[in-house]
């Protein structure tokens, strides 16, 4: 499996790239249809329908949508609070769409941050995410232990003046492994997570446990190991006084000795990356 991901043009990477692009296309299409009054539940359903219409049958997890201060997970205590609510979108509100479809057996997990109207603070948060994308890549290439990278990302967030909000995710993870999923006619989900994908994650956890690594990239001791080859859905999430922003996309890690080849973002043609490039041109 390790050698599969080494070549950037490998058909397998193409499969992941395709589903990741599909998911981002869905996010952009749904975001464009968000109007004042739309609820989180409706936004989640819009994502689901859009992807089903295009052939998605299974999920790593069902789509989420967070509006307003829920983008910063304000007051989140139990995981159930992640599920979409009847909160309505209002002008000036930030929102996040987060979905993880499985398409032709390939999984993506993406996060898309937007805002209904002008919101200079939200713009600032989005712009400040760029440094995190660069930091994570460079430290993974240095083969630093995942836990230390986690701490460095957190330190950068605090220096930027923000709070680390991915800490609110189960196990406080900044990333988790994704993989191919066997296509089954029937794949039920529990608590929004696809059973096939959970099975994969669980088996990784079992194997990893034996070999001293974990498919969850967390601040805890079980992440005290160098990056493990494979595909990681990385999701740094900034929060600042009721406004949150994140991106989520796949980082490819290989066992190559060449730093450039040892880790790279699966795709650089994504909305947030394009946005940063446009801002640089404008500046």
């Amino acid at each position: 499996m390790v050698s599969r991901v080494k070549d950037e043009r490998a058909p397998e990477l193409q499969g992941f790239r395709e589903v990741q692009r599909l998911a981002y296309a869905c996010a952009e299409a749904v975001a464009a249809r968000l109007k004042p009054g739309v609820t989180e539940r409706e936004a989640a359903r819009m994502q689901r329908e859009w992807l089903r219409e295009r052939g998605v049958r299974d999920w790593f997890h069902l789509p989420f949508a967070w509006f307003g201060d829920r983008t910063a997970f304000a007051g989140f205590k139990v995981p159930l609070q992640f599920f979409p609510t009847d909160r309505r979108l209002e002008p000036g509100m930030p929102f996040i769409l987060d979905m993880a479809p499985v398409y032709k057996g390939f999984t993506a997990d993406i996060g898309y941050s937007g805002c209904l109207g002008l919101h200079p603070l939200h713009d600032r948060l989005l712009a400040d995410l760029e440094a995190h994308r660069a930091l994570i890549l460079s430290e993974v290439r240095e083969r630093r232990p995942l836990r230390e990278i986690y701490e460095d990302v957190e330190r950068l967030m605090i220096r930027q003046g923000y709070a680390n909000r991915h800490r609110a995710y189960p196990f406080g993870v900044i990333a988790h492994k994704v993989d191919r999923v066997a296509e089954r006619r029937w794949s039920p989900h529990v608590f929004g997570f696809g059973t096939q994908s959970l099975k994969g994650l669980l088996s990784d956890a079992v194997h990893g446990h034996r070999d001293g690594w974990s498919p969850l990239w967390s601040p805890y001791r079980f992440s005290d190991h160098p990056p493990q080859p494979g595909l990681w859905a990385v999701e740094p999430h900034l929060g600042f006084r009721g406004t949150g922003a994140k991106f989520e996309e796949i980082l490819v890690v290989t066992d190559s000795r060449d730093p450039e080849q040892s880790a790279f973002w699966l795709d650089d043609d994504l909305p947030h990356v394009r946005r940063w490039a446009e801002e640089r041109v404008a500046a």
Partner: peptide
């Protein structure tokens, strides 16, 4: 940085 964010909020 503090001053910049203060203006934004």
């Amino acid at each position: 940085r503090t001053a910049e964010l203060a203006r934004l909020i």
